[in-house]
Amino acid sequence: MSGENNWGLILGTLVFWAAAWALNEWLVRRDFAAPLARRAARLAVPLIFGITILVLWEGLVRGFNVPSVLLPPPSMIGVRLVNSLPILAADFRQTFLKSVLTGYAMGCGLGFLVAILIDRSPFLQKGLLPLGNFVSALPVIGVAPIMVMWFGFDWQSKVAVVIIMTFFPMLVNTVEGLGAASHMERDLMRTYAASWWQTLIKLRLPAAWPFIFNALKINSTLALIGAIVAEFFGTPIVGMGFRISTEVGRMNVDMVWAEIAVAALAGSAFYGAVALIERMVTFWHPSVRGGQA
């Protein structure tokens, strides 16, 4: 640690923090008459909080002269992010577009299909559901080294890890969702002499959508984690997990943070996209209708 602590900067940061806190307190206590203003206030509060965190981080790191190996200030991370866009884009393509999306689609699709297949057999359901719940609590990520051994260093092994991680949440939730339609509704379908397929498509699948989307949302996070951690076990010289582990070794912490920022953005965007589709598909569900104030 070199140089004096910059007390002016630290003090300024703390003042900014107090002011932002006070502004937030004021915003949540005030009752805005216009609906637009109320909406803006609702949005502004978390935004101000996020900006405050960034300012606090920047101010304290610079004020106390924290070495950038330990914790680089956000501005440095931002500069690094902009400067190394091609590398980050290549990593994003390798990890997200190839591993995560492929594995996610295959894992979720497989879980869904198996759930439909075992739908007619209560015996298999009773056998598979406790196992599925059990596996969901296990550190499934541990299969990563085995998959790397089987499918090689490239993205195929990451896809395999992601499939295994996303399969069970999807299976469990779909089976649960398919049982969500009530007896009354099913009896009604019977009085219509509806076949199993008609009941499935017109009644039970729509009733299952909230459960299925729940699994899709959980899986969107799991898939990204699975792909990144699997890259710690061996990978070609591109990929988010590879970049994180090697740049940490070279003490380029700002690059690591830039990569994490990309991962965070990708993860949030992925989750947001799934949530948006959910709102469109399950527009009838109380949690969606109630959400629109």
Binding site: W21, E25, L27, V45, F49, L70, S220, I228, I244, S268
Partner: peptide, 30 residues
């Protein structure tokens, strides 16, 4: 605390969409 609720909760939820495990090696090494 309402201010904490309004400002903190969205970030708690947003943070769950982030692959937190990616940070692990950095925390260890740093």
């Amino acid at each position: 605390n309402r201010a904490m609720d309004r400002s903190f909760m969205p970030w708690v939820i947003a943070s769950q969409t982030i692959p937190i495990l990616a940070v692990a090696p950095m925390i260890i090494v740093v």
